[in-house]
Structures are given as structure tokens and as C-alpha cells.
Design a binder for these strands. Structure first.
Lengths: 258, 258
DNA sequence: ATTAATTCCGTATTTTTAACGGAATTAATA
DNA sequence: TATTAATTCCGTTAAAAATACGGAATTAAT
């Protein structure tokens, strides 16, 4: 727990938060046919973490997750999905928190029996966002922070590698029951683009004709009259999401079994 | 947080636990074609809660859930499934904890800014168990504790009514992907029995011929050569679970879509 | 005019799911 | 001992969904 400037004591800052419980957000983005995750490298440590933070006593865990996701991405109203909580004593062994270490990074002396040295339960959410939207606010992100391809992760702190894998499992399960893509694609997109998105997330190839058939059957995307001119080949038509049907699908479920 | 006898101070007892986070177990049992949930009525309050408890600093959240489930049921090795975490400021308003109240029930004076007066995030699990196994240990359960039909719940503390509903939703989703019943049926059971169990959990009637077909296709149950003599009608054959296939199904999933 | 890259479309086959009726067994009882 | 009431148990057909697959059209570069 890093103390921002302007606080006279550790507790003056930390008292606004719940103890021994925190939120982690696995922020996923899609770029160049690859799923990426936004990681940060805090406090000059050599390991990376998913984005996360503490829960204010006055907010719900969902509100905390939203607030933190907004802080890291600058995007309001991200779709956050809780997929599990993680907690075991090994977490505190791995993080290297000691009174000396806390003294060094925060300047405050804390007793060895402070709750800060007990393990934290992490309530984990994942979210999907369009890669480019976040990159534009990259300058505002704190410390070291960058996108990593989900299958080429750097050395991760604690169990964060595991948490990312669980997020991906949850996403793959989720995708079978709910529409996906609104958050990950530009407003107008082509069929091959959304096709490739699904292939990337599911990690397998999907027959293009069957994919199109099923997708259009759900009516969550509608064809536009425009095409996009790219490359020396036929120009693909553009599509967009039918926002109402999409929202409806999020609530009540849409079967899209691939 | 009730202090057992023999502790000199609140912190002497509470220091073994993580703060502001706890575990709740929705213990489900099946009896007479009805799903029931084990609830307790703590501290002479008039509202009921699902079983739950605090997490020791030395144990994982899963271990805490197991320990607590064992305490309440006397059954070792219950299958516990995490299905979500719940936390918002309303929880603390609802529980009625005040320094005066804590003084009354524990005998200790606590400062108003103690973490005990902040809300607790609940990591929730559900478990399935054979009703009769637990009932036999009922005498050992603490305080008021009894089974309630899941659709005739008494007044519930906090959001515990909501948590139970979420547990049931999770269970109904779960049942489509994993085998169920080993924990809820006696060792040997009849087809009508397991059929009725599935109907009860899913809350709808399932065609018996199709049900049997699908169930046997999974190979998780095997037919025995015995029958059970009950009533003035044809004696049903007995079946049992193939434990190996069942375990395998729990790990890798079994499609049983009804 | 040719070529390379890519979009786009439809039908046939297989598999899965859903719907459905009637004969067999048991024990009570008339 | 014949009848009745309650329940188990079985198999086929129709409908729906998923899968497999080939070839023509467009574009821009050469």
C-alpha cells in the first residue's frame, strides 16, 4: 500500500479502506489479432501485477472495481465481470512486505502485527476494452504500465498469472452465453474483424460461413451500407452492434455456441 | 464476531483472523423432493443467516470454507464451490453492529473506529450434502440451526436471501456442465430418485425417457443387479455412481443439458 | 489482362434434441 | 385369484441445430 503525498500517517490514509481485502481488475484489450492485458509494475519491483486497488469503506466492491478501472483506463462505464476471489497465506509470503520494506517505500514505521502484513483476499474482475481507447490515455497511467499479450506474460507478482488465466477461462465460458465485442471493436467493423476476435478469444478457428450465420441470427449486429476500402481485394461491408439487442443479450443471455 | 469464553480481550481472539473479509457457506440439502438450506439464527436475533465464519490468517479462503462447513455439518470433504463475493456499505448498516451492541454480546469495549464496524466482504461458497447425514449431527450444531426449504425462507439478515438465490443460480448453471448428485443421494439410488433430484434443482419437469437416456450416456452412473422393494408397484433397479468417472467429470466437465 | 489476396454466399449431411404411448411389475383388496 | 392402482421402464419418429464444404466476386497491384 503506497501512501500518496500529503498524509501525516499511515493510518490517516489507510483508514478510508477496508483491511485485508482488495480488488484486482484484469483489463483485457484486443489488438492486431491478439488479446492483451494491461499490467503495471509497481514500486520499481521487477515483477508485474494486474491493475488493482483498495476498497473504500463507503463503496461497494463493484464500485471500487469501476473506480479503479476508470483510474487506469480513463474509460467510464466499462463492463466489469466478477469471476472469483483469491486468498491464501502464500500471497503474503510472495509479496515481500516487511516493516523494513514498508518503511522504505512509504516512510512510515508500522508494527509487525499490522494487518498490512497479513494476506489480502483479492476480489477479481475482468473487463474488456478497445485497446486503442486506453492507449490514448496511457500518459496518465501511473508508474510503469503497459499491455502484454496474454500468452507472453512477464514475471508476475503473487498469483497474478493464475488470476489472468482464470479470467480468460471465465471469459471463454462467458462468451458462450453472452454477446461480446461491443467493448473490443471500433463502432463500425467488418465481419472478418469480429470473426477474428472470436477466434482469438476462443483460441481456435471457426468456419467463416457458420460463424456469420450464427452471428447474424442473433440480430445483435446489423449490416451497414458502407464498405471499407483496404488492400487489393474486395472491400468488406461494415457492421455495427444493435445496442438495444446487445444490452438485452447481456441481461438475458444469447446462445452463441461455437 | 462472538468471542468464545477464555479470551482476555477482543483482539486476543480476533487477531487470528483476517479483517473485513469472511466466508459464507450456503449449505444445500435435498429431502423429500425439496431443496433445503441450512440456516442459523445467531445471538438471539430474530433474523437468520447462512452459515459462515472468519478466515484465519494461516489458511486459504477455501480451507476456511471447509473448516466452517465441517463445523456445521460434521462432514469432511464436502464439495465446496465458490460462486461469488458480496460487499457493499449497506451490509454494515443492516447488521446493527454498534459499540454498545458488541459490548452487550461480547463484554468488550471497542472503539467506534474498529474495523469490526466496517462492512465485511463475504466470499461465498455453496455445497451440496445429503440431508440425513447432517441431520444426524444436528445436536452438535451451535445455537439455533435448522433446514429451511429454499423457497420458504425466514427473514434473512443482510443480503443473505440474495446470496442464497445467487447460489441457486450458480448451481443451476453448474449442473449443466458437471455431474451432481453424488453428494445428495444415498450410495444406491433409483432412476426416479435421481430424476426427481434434477427436477427439483432445475425447477422444471424433465421427460423421464430423455433424462435416462442422457444420464446413462455420460456413464457416470451404473446399473446394479438389485432392486428396491417399495410400495405396491414394480420394483425399481438400483444404480450407483461410478466414482472415477464422476471425479473425472467434476474436473473436465460433462455436458448434461436439460 | 493477369494475378494475388480476400470477401462472401448456400446447400447437403450429420448429430442432437424433443416429443410421445403403452406394456410390465408389484402389492393391496375385493 | 382376479382386479385395481401406482409406478417403472422402454424405443421410435420428427424437428432442430451443428457441421462440413467449394466456388464465384471484388479489388488493386503489376
Amino acid at each position: 500500500m503506497i501512501i500518496p503525498p500529503g498524509f501525516a500517517s499511515f493510518s490517516e490514509y489507510s483508514d478510508q479502506f477496508l483491511k485485508n481485502v482488495a480488488v484486482d481488475n484484469v483489463i483485457l484489450g484486443y489488438h492486431e489479432k491478439e488479446l492483451k492485458v494491461l499490467l503495471q509494475q509497481p514500486y520499481t519491483l521487477e515483477k508485474w501485477t494486474v491493475t488493482g486497488g483498495y476498497i473504500k469503506k463507503t463503496e461497494s466492491i463493484e464500485d471500487a472495481a469501476s473506480r479503479i478501472a476508470f483510474d487506469r483506463t480513463g474509460i467510464k462505464g466499462l463492463y466489469l465481470k466478477q469471476f472469483g476471489s483469491f486468498g491464501n497465506p502464500q500471497r503474503v509470503i510472495d509479496n515481500g512486505f516487511t516493516p523494513q520494506y514498508i518503511k522504505k517505500i512509504t516512510g512510515f514505521d508500522l508494527p509487525a502485527d499490522s494487518w498490512i502484513f497479513d494476506y489480502f483476499v483479492s476480489v477479481a474482475f475482468y473487463t474488456l476494452t478497445e485497446f486503442s481507447k486506453v492507449e490514448s490515455t496511457k500518459g496518465e497511467l501511473e508508474a510503469d504500465s503497459r499491455w502484454w499479450p496474454v500468452n507472453e506474460l512477464p514475471p508476475m507478482m503473487f498469483d497474478h498469472g493464475h488470476i489472468i488465466n482464470e479470467a480468460l477461462s471465465a471469459l471463454r465460458l462467458h462468451i458462450a452465453h453472452f454477446p461480446i465485442g461491443y467493448e473490443l471493436l471500433p463502432e463500425k467493423f467488418t465481419l472478418p474483424e469480429i470473426h477474428s476476435l472470436y477466434e482469438t478469444i476462443l483460441g481456435k478457428s471457426l468456419d467463416d460461413r457458420n460463424f456469420t450465420k450464427k452471428l447474424l441470427l442473433t440480430k445483435i449486429v446489423t449490416k451497414l451500407d458502407e464498405t471499407r476500402k483496404i488492400g487489393r481485394h474486395r472491400s468488406p461491408f461494415l457492421y455495427k452492434f444493435d445496442k438495444e439487442r446487445y444490452q438485452e443479450g447481456l441481461k438475458s443471455g444469447v446462445a452463441l455456441v461455437f
